[in-house]
Amino acid sequence: MSELPDRRLLLVHAHPDDETINNGVTMARYVAEGAHVTLVTCTLGEEGEVLVPELEHLAADQTDQLGRHRIGELAAAMDELGVTDHRFLGGPGKYRDTGMIYNDEGNADVPPETRPDSFWQADLLTAADDLVPIIREIRPQVLVTYDQYGNYGHPDHIKAHRVATYAAALAASRSYREDLGEPWDVAKIYWMAMAESGMRESLRKLRESGDTTTFEGLDPDGPLGPYVTPDRFVDCVISGEGYIDRKMNAMKAHATQITVDGPFFALSNNNGSEIWGSEAYRLVKGTAAPGPDGVEDDLFAGL
Rank of each mutant, 00 (worst) to 15 (best):
K159C: 06
N151R: 13
W276P: 02
T63P: 07
G67C: 05
L224E: 00
V228I: 06
G286Y: 11
F119Q: 13
Y227D: 13
L74H: 09
P155T: 03
P290A: 08
P16Q: 05
M251W: 15
E56D: 04
R204K: 10
V40A: 13
G48C: 13
S202T: 10
K285P: 06
L89H: 05
G286A: 07
K205Q: 11
P155Q: 02
G277F: 01
L74W: 00
D123T: 05
A171P: 08
G181D: 15
R7H: 12
D61W: 11
D6K: 04
A167T: 06
G91I: 12
A75D: 15
L58H: 11
D293W: 01
E113M: 14
G99M: 07
E137F: 03
A280Q: 12
R70K: 13
I258C: 05
T114F: 14
I238W: 00
N270I: 10
M199H: 15
N22A: 07
N270G: 13
F233W: 02
I101W: 06
P263Y: 02
P263E: 15
V52Y: 06
H86I: 05
R87F: 06
Q141S: 09
S239F: 03
D297F: 03
D79M: 02
D221F: 15
L224C: 04
E113T: 09
V110W: 00
V110Q: 04
Y95V: 10
T287F: 14
G217S: 13
D245C: 07
D261S: 03
G242V: 03
D61C: 09
D64V: 00
G93V: 03
S173K: 08
V132I: 06
G72A: 15
R162E: 08
H57C: 10
K94A: 13
M100T: 07
S197Y: 15
A160H: 05
A35Q: 01
D64Q: 06
Q62E: 07
L131D: 07
P292K: 10
R174S: 02
H36Y: 12
L170W: 07
L203W: 01
I134P: 08
M1I: 01
Q121V: 03
F233D: 11
L51S: 14
R29Y: 06
V144Y: 12
I258N: 13
M1N: 11
L10R: 02
A168E: 14
R232P: 00
V31E: 14
N107G: 08
N103T: 00
G24E: 00
D298V: 03
G181P: 03
L10Y: 04
